[in-house]
């Protein structure tokens, strides 16, 4: 009862309120209240997420499972950044409260959290992301083959977009006029056309499909037919 029926009724009630509020403006305050509850729950989920991360990695370390050393690094990073942020290590006090260090902003320049962000977190994430350029280049060389008509179309589109999104597009088709029908064949204009027409059409079709699927799943949840979100597998 407490584990399944009550949560299901709560989900149904919240969902129905959200839908009805669209049609009956009188219910708007109730809709806002429901959204506030959702946002509070989302904040609590951060704590649950942190707890779960600790649990999973502590278990891995204690069992000495393969890769446990990486779990140690994860735990050390998690705990140290949490401590730096929570205890405001290295934070400069505000001018209004010069003796109260804890009143300072933990994100302010010069704080411990700021150093971790600027000199550890930001360079690491940027490095990992920038490595994509190398892997994509290698993958394109080995896998992007004109094996059939569809692949040729994809290849042609890729060439147009790759060149059209840079100054090379303008340079290569500069001989074409800027006005009139031939202007459509300038690479930069061709890129815009591809993005505005085939890409948009394809994406709209996908979006409409997703929307219909979402409506269908939502209805199943509201009516209590789909209970998979409660766990347990049914």
């Amino acid at each position: 009862m407490m584990k399944r029926t009550i949560p299901m009724l709560l989900a149904m009630a919240a969902g129905i309120v959200m839908i009805l509020a669209y049609f009956f403006p009188l219910l708007a305050p109730l809709q806002d209240k429901t959204t506030v509850w959702f946002n509070i729950l989302a904040a609590v989920a951060f704590i649950l997420g942190g707890g779960n991360l600790l649990k999973v990695h502590l278990k891995k370390v204690s069992d000495r499972r393969e890769g446990w050393a990486y779990s140690m690094i994860t735990l050390a990073a998690f705990v140290s950044v949490l401590a730096i942020g929570l205890f405001k290590l290295g934070v400069n006090p505000l001018d209004e409260f010069p003796t109260q260090r804890m009143a300072g902003d933990f994100r302010a320049e010069g704080s411990g959290f700021w150093y971790v962000y600027e000199y550890v977190f930001a360079p690491l994430t940027a490095t990992i992301f920038s490595m994509l350029a190398f892997y994509v280049a290698s993958a394109a060389f080995r896998a992007f083959r004109a094996k059939n008509l569809e692949a040729i179309l994809l290849l042609g589109t890729a060439f147009v977009i790759l060149l059209g999104r840079t100054a090379a597009g303008v340079f290569l088709t500069d001989f074409l006029p800027e006005e009139g029908m031939l202007a459509n064949f300038r690479l930069e204009n061709l890129t815009v056309w591809i993005m505005n027409n085939p890409v948009t059409a394809g994406n709209r079709a996908i979006m409409i499909g997703i929307a219909l699927g979402t409506a269908s799943v939502s209805l199943k949840i509201l009516l209590g037919v789909d209970r998979s979100y409660l766990g347990g597998g049914d």
């Binding site: 790759l162 999104r165 090379a168």
Partner: peptide, 16 residues
């Protein structure tokens, strides 16, 4: 980005 894209086009061409 320009030189990277030109290299990518070249690599795809050579790969094919």
């Amino acid at each position: 980005q320009l030189s990277g894209h030109i290299l990518m086009v070249g690599l795809i061409f050579v790969g094919n």
